[in-house]
Structure formats: structure tokens, C-alpha cells
Design a protein around this nucleic acid. Sequence first.
DNA 1: ACCGGTGAGTAGGAAATCCAAACTCACCAT
DNA 2: ATGGTGAGTTTGGATTTCCTACTCACCGGT
Lengths: 156, 156
Amino acid sequence: MAAPKDPRPCSIADTLALVGEKYSLLVLREVCLGNGRFDQLVRNIGAPRDVLATRLRRLVEADILTKRLYSERPQRFEYRPTPAGLELEPVLLTLMAWGDRHIRQDDDRPMVVEHSCHHELIPVVTCAACGEAVSHEDLTARPQSPGWTVTGRTAA
Amino acid sequence: MAAPKDPRPCSIADTLALVGEKYSLLVLREVCLGNGRFDQLVRNIGAPRDVLATRLRRLVEADILTKRLYSERPQRFEYRPTPAGLELEPVLLTLMAWGDRHIRQDDDRPMVVEHSCHHELIPVVTCAACGEAVSHEDLTARPQSPGWTVTGRTAA
DNA sequence: ACCGGTGAGTAGGAAATCCAAACTCACCAT
DNA sequence: ATGGTGAGTTTGGATTTCCTACTCACCGGT
């Protein structure tokens, strides 16, 4: 799992090293929906139990999930998202919206999320500073470390 | 890659089936930065060449990338994002911001993205209808198909 | 006490993937 | 002729994943 060659330093790569393995983001989906028990996860995700156990260990270790005891006598645990885990929910929402748009262009979406404003949630990524929706042409990459060669719109 | 058991229908899972394999999103990162040539990708990502070739084929097939000829006589290709591919850029930005916040709490970010408003881009996911930043407590999941049991805040 | 059921995993070997390095093929430069 | 580059493919071995079955602890009914 270490560097095969010398990939460049990148927070995207580092984040994916934590949550980019198969099923990890689906675990987060379930846990955000409140389905945090092992057998629920197995059923809803369809992952092998051993892989799931491994993912859960890593996600707890990365402080994305916490393991909560919900029954003392037969020790039973439930996984819940930490604040850091909840901050990944926007990633899930954006992925879901993309799939809804590009994979099922018909209206057979398997789930709809409603916002507290009583409209269906259509997530839009905006710039915190100006509030505008972000589009590719408005972005300029500014590498902070050497090794980042960018051929496109790059500031000096 | 088919259903191992009966995972529930989900656009997150379907999208991850396209871009969730190892390196796929890093390929998209490079391509969005303008580094679309094979050897650049190998160097910048650090992936084995055969795996990269497989990923590129799948991403082209999924209409996330296109293969463009940039030199006739020695046939040379370059990969570029399609409109659908560009719509995944917000996912990358959100992952990057998460990593910057939670993995490197210090200020040694490897890259900063600047928005056309001349401020550093801090991506925020908002609701298209009301414009508010999305937070977990404001969301209600509304399953559209059977098989979705949600224990948390679910509308009837 | 016994039987079946549930929840949370572990064990084991087959199947699929991944990895690194070497190789190909087509072209250009010296 | 030799060397170099770009875009991959091949090869063979190391890792992971997958899936079924098993364990262990407990509970509920009879």
C-alpha cells in the first residue's frame, strides 16, 4: 500500500488511501443513514464479512467512524460517523447526484434526499469566498511543492 | 464486478463502480490538470502501466474521458475529460479539502486551487434550491425503492 | 437443559487483481 | 546504425478479494 514509485504529494490521494478502497464509501453511506450494525452492513452493501471487518477497523482507526456499544450483555456494537466522517457526506451526495444524472437519465432514482428547506437536495459545490458555483474554467491550480507540473491554467 | 449478493440499488455504488477503482480518480485529477499523456500519468500517479491502461480504457468507455490524437505521424494520444468527467471535479475538490483539513492540519498543503474571484477555493456543498450549506442534520433520506431500510431521519 | 436463532466476527483456499520489469512497435534524431 | 521517446502489451509472481463455512456468546421458548 506504500508508494510504488514516487507519486506526488496530494491530499486527494491521501484521502483516497483512507476511504478509496472497495466498499469503504458504501460503509459510510450506510452509517450516515443510521444503519450501523454489522449484519445490516453486510446485507445492504453485499460485501464479504471479512472485507467489511477490515474496512471497519481501518475507518475507526482513521477517526471516520466510532464503534459504540449498544448492548452490554451480549456485547453488540454499532458504527456511527464521527464529525470527520460526516464531513465526507458531501462527497457521497455529489457522487449520488452524478450517478443520477449520468447513469440513470430516466427518473428511476433509487433514493432522493430532501433538504430542510423542503426541496429535493441537488448538491452544488460553491466557493466559500464568493458563493458562486464552481466550474472548471474558473479554477487555477497553484502547486505548492516541486514535482507538480501542470500544463493547463496554472499560476506562476 | 457483478452483484455478490443483492446490494441495494444506489447511484453512489453505481458511480463508484465506474470511478471507484484504484487510481481512477487520480487519473481524473491529472487529466483535469491538463496532464493527459500516458507517461505523465504513469509518473505522476505512480501506477503500474498495465493497470493504468485498463483504467483509461474503462474511463473512455464510460464517457468520462476522451482519447484525442495530438500527433499524426507517430500516433500519439492524449486523454481529456468529457463534460461528464468535468462534473466529477467537485468530488476531487471535496476530497482534497477534506484531506487538507483532516490529514495535514498543518499548513503544508501540496496544492492550492484559486477561484476566479481571486480567493483560495474552499469548496462548500450547498442546496441548489435554497443556497444554504448542507449539513447532515438538515437531510432526510427518502428511499424510492423497496429494500432500503433507514433507521435514522427518514420520511414516511 | 436443550434447540434454534441472531449478531459479530474468524478461517481457509480458490479466484481475481496488482505490481514491476521487460518487451514491442513506430517513429524521429544524430 | 544507434539511441531515444511515447504508448502501450506481456510475463510471471506477489497481494487482495471473494465466498462458504465455522466459531463464540448470548437470548427466548419449551
